[in-house]
Simulated scan of single mutants.
Amino acid sequence: MKEIALNLKSMQDYRINESYKQLRTNIEFSGEENKIIAVTSCTPSEGKSTVSLSTAYSLAEAGKKVLFIDADLRKSVLTGRYKISGEMKGLTHFLSGQGDLSEILCKTNEKGLFVIFAGPVPPNPAELLGSKKFAALLKEARNIYDYIIIDTPPLGSVIDSAIVSAVCDAAILVISANTISYKFARSVKDQLAKTGCNILGVVLNKVSMKQNKYYGKYYGKYYGHYGSDK
């Protein structure tokens, strides 16, 4: 099993870290049946990859054994962020029969957190994610890990997230503040609901804490939010 350094804790200030703890608590209290959780957004650049990986880290920090799967096979942000070399095999290798689980599973420097990166962009991402092999991977992981957090492509752009959500216990929608319309967000939420997956709620991301002090004091049930002054 390969090892990789993520150094997630150094990326978060106290306020953001507390927000992730709040989200973690909401996930834990949503029910023990919600072990496999898909994270998606409406459009690219809303921060879903950061939210999903940081949520996985927060759960691991609380003593849980967590598997994070980068299932954004079309345009993985994390592969570039962590400078994953082309020699490292990922999810696409496994799903296409070019690698086994031991070759794609990575142990991180964060205790309890394991990662499977996306791998190279395949010509048929939706078909791979909808395969029996992916469903079997999740079934096996359920027996090993306390939580499986899956980063999926924006549902407002491609169908992949709906395909993944259909085999998950629950889903979280990440929405960037002042970026999309209510109508579009509602449309994506309705599309996600059609998969039959339990929607835990929405994470309001990229909120200016200077302009929205109210958000810093309130978190609704199954909701979290992460401020940014940048």
Score class of each variant (00 low, 15 high):
89 K>W: 07
92 T>G: 12
57 Y>K: 01
196 G>D: 14
51 V>H: 02
138 L>E: 01
180 I>A: 05
72 D>R: 07
132 K>G: 04
189 K>W: 05
192 L>P: 02
104 I>E: 02
162 A>L: 10
161 S>A: 15
160 D>H: 06
40 T>C: 06
100 D>F: 11
180 I>S: 10
176 S>Y: 06
1 M>I: 08
225 H>L: 15
117 F>V: 02
15 R>M: 05
222 Y>H: 13
92 T>C: 06
41 S>P: 05
216 G>W: 01
76 S>E: 06
91 L>A: 02
33 E>R: 08
209 M>E: 14
154 P>L: 04
175 I>Y: 05
188 V>Y: 01
34 N>F: 08
49 S>V: 09
120 P>H: 11
122 P>Y: 14
227 G>W: 03
9 K>N: 14
96 S>C: 13
112 G>N: 00
23 L>F: 08
156 G>H: 03
115 V>F: 12
80 G>L: 05
6 L>S: 12
124 N>V: 00
63 G>M: 12
41 S>T: 04
187 S>Q: 06
19 S>V: 06
45 S>D: 06
191 Q>G: 13
102 S>Q: 13
170 A>R: 03
106 C>W: 02
203 V>W: 12
85 S>I: 04
95 L>N: 00
103 E>P: 04
194 K>M: 15
230 K>Y: 11
10 S>T: 15
89 K>S: 08
219 Y>P: 12
75 K>H: 09
221 K>H: 11
133 K>C: 00
141 A>T: 01
187 S>F: 03
186 R>T: 12
2 K>N: 07
195 T>R: 10
194 K>F: 10
24 R>L: 01
127 E>D: 11
205 N>E: 12
205 N>A: 08
9 K>C: 10
223 Y>W: 09
52 S>D: 09
217 K>I: 15
56 A>C: 02
167 V>M: 08
67 L>W: 01
62 A>P: 01
40 T>H: 13
